[in-house]
């Protein structure tokens, strides 16, 4: 049953991922990506990582998708379909994707689980979905599942305190970076006459005269 659910979600996720790269329309591609994020959240649920699943929906479907949409609205060629993603950027894009894939595969392959490093098949079998097995660490696991936010918080504040503050620093850096980026896009100073683009807004609303 669990395997069936996994296959279903993974299949849907794969379809969404394919849609993302094959769609000609940027907004649709971003929407497929959001659907893919949602599928990942569903996978987290089947792994009993409920908190993570909810965070995935909140951050990726709720926030990053909006950021993507606003980013698309910033580009010149938002007009649907005409956004051409093919051509010169196809090969570098493929290369970058391949690199990410290799890094991820390497990382997953070398991941060390609580029960030590094992082959992939062992790792796949470990987080069994039935509560009956794994008696040795059952109590800890039950607590982690029932009270995941609190366990995560305790870990943040003790074991990963430094990482936590670094995350804060990273977020601040992101915010400052965005601000600088916006300032870079420097507008004409108030003394200069506005350039043509602004006095003649491209698609002015239908003239009433």
């Amino acid at each position: 049953m669990a395997r069936l659910v996994f296959l279903l979600i993974a299949g849907l996720g794969l379809l969404a991922a394919l849609g993302t790269i094959l769609s000609r329309d940027l907004v649709r591609a971003a929407l497929y990506l959001a659907a893919f994020f949602f599928c990942v959240a569903c996978l987290f649920v089947t792994l009993e990582a409920e908190f993570l699943a909810v965070v995935q929906v909140l951050i990726y479907v709720g926030a990053v998708a909006i950021l993507l949409m606003f980013g698309i609205m910033l580009t010149r060629d938002a007009a649907g379909g005409s956004a051409d993603l093919s051509g010169a950027w196809r090969v570098p894009g493929l290369l970058a994707g391949l690199c990410v894939f290799v890094v991820l595969a390497f990382g997953i392959h070398n991941a060390v689980s609580p029960s030590g490093k094992g082959p992939w098949s062992g790792i796949v079998a470990r987080p069994a979905l039935e509560p009956s097995d794994g008696v040795a660490w059952k109590a800890e696991r039950v607590r982690a599942i029932d009270d995941m936010p609190r366990v995560v918080g305790e870990q943040f504040m003790t074991r990963y305190a430094l990482t936590f503050e670094l995350a804060g620093l990273l977020l601040t850096a992101a915010l400052v970076g965005a601000v600088v980026l916006v300032r870079e896009d420097s507008p004409p100073t108030p003394d200069e006459p506005a350039d043509a683009a602004s006095t003649e807004p491209e698609p002015a609303v239908a003239a009433t005269r």
């Binding site: 926030a63 909006i66 910033l74 007009a79 649907g80 992101a174 965005a178 491209e202 698609p203």
Partner: peptide, 18 residues
Amino acid sequence: AWVRFRIQYYVYAIMFVV
């Protein structure tokens, strides 16, 4: 209707994500 929007919106989106 599908035109370029002002960058302010994007700043708010970034702040929102952060």
